[in-house]
Nucleic acid binder design. Structure first.
Lengths: 187, 187
DNA sequence: GTCTATAATTTGATAGAC
DNA sequence: GTCTATCAAATTATAGAC
């Protein structure tokens, strides 16, 4: 097993924290260098271009997220509790005054980001919707229920609105309704 | 009546176009100066600090949006058609590859923006939810229906996700469901 | 009001010593 | 790998002429 906490990973961790707070365009190589205690040229050693940093950042975030999805035992929990666990992952990504989901903020900035980064962000959404599709197909089909992409969209939007307003109200209401509407189908 | 298209308003129009595409942090005074055909120092004449520009930009956007809401004749249309018109305003704010709602992108960047700007963005959401509350109270109360803040959140999130993926799919599905769910209540 | 000129700072990025 | 040193460009912002 390779070293768990390399410099490269430390830089990515610092980048994730900063980008999830202020966005990709507002984070500099020098910010990250200071965070991990090196010079900015050393950050360039690991990520020659800022684009490389963005690419690796979203990849890491997506893999971490996927790993947490894999921990959700759908067989044991059943579809509703699994959906609740999914929504819980999003809930833990939102810390008012501190951070939102990485892909919410990168999604909003997408027109100013390199295509390579955008493709990774799109892949995050696609993996999430695919996972959701896996559990929702175990539900009775009902025309009034949100589809996977609608659920992901609603959670990301609620995160952003909650972040500006400064309370979790919008997010919590959205999260609760998504779960409740599906639970209702199984009564 | 004062001049309709002053330099100040031209700058704000250029700023709106750019910010709705790439975000506030990725737009510079020189960008706007070139757009309207002056030097950047002239832009500073109208907006001494970038914060002043952001503040005026969101105020203008909110007022324009409110004016379009005022044009929706709720009495004549009835609540469902009025809700449809509301959703239509959001729909027209999304142009794939070009722009999203100003407050979606500023909301995502909020942690890196001046408080003054954030307060204006929050006010936009509050005015929108207040308008929605006005028409939804004419509907039969139903526990399964989205509240105003949930509707606004869902539309903003769907805009961002659609923007990254590159198709209107997520937005259109969200918009259609919001209207359909309420229409269903009035059958 | 708009310009020239410029200051002060920050940014992404590179060359080369150690 | 990390550093020093540096570059070219861009950024916000101001002073003062016209």
């Amino acid at each position: 097993m390779t070293e768990r906490s390399s410099m490269r990973d430390g830089i990515l961790a610092a980048a994730e924290k900063r980008v999830r707070a202020v966005g990709f365009n507002a984070v500099s190589f020098r910010d990250l260098a200071r965070d991990v205690g090196v010079k900015s040229s050393s950050v360039h050693y690991y990520f020659p271009q800022k684009e490389d940093l963005g690419d690796a950042l979203v990849l890491r975030y997506t893999q971490d997220f996927q790993a947490r999805l894999d921990e959700i035992d759908i067989q044991t929990l059943g579809p509703v509790a699994a959906l609740e666990a999914f929504v819980g992952l999003y809930a833990s990504a939102l810390v008012i005054g501190e951070s939102v989901c990485l892909c919410a903020i990168l999604g909003a900035e997408s027109q100013s980001l390199p295509d390579r980064v955008n493709r990774r962000v799109a892949a995050f959404f696609e993996e999430n919707t695919a996972w959701l599709a896996g559990i929702l197909e175990r539900m009775p089909t009902a025309s009034g229920l949100m589809t996977p992409i609608e659920i992901v969209s609603a959670l990301e939007g609620a995160m952003i609105v909650s972040s500006v307003i400064g309370t979790r109200e919008a997010f919590d209401a959205t999260a609760a309704r998504i779960v409740a509407n599906y639970a209702e189908q199984l009564r």
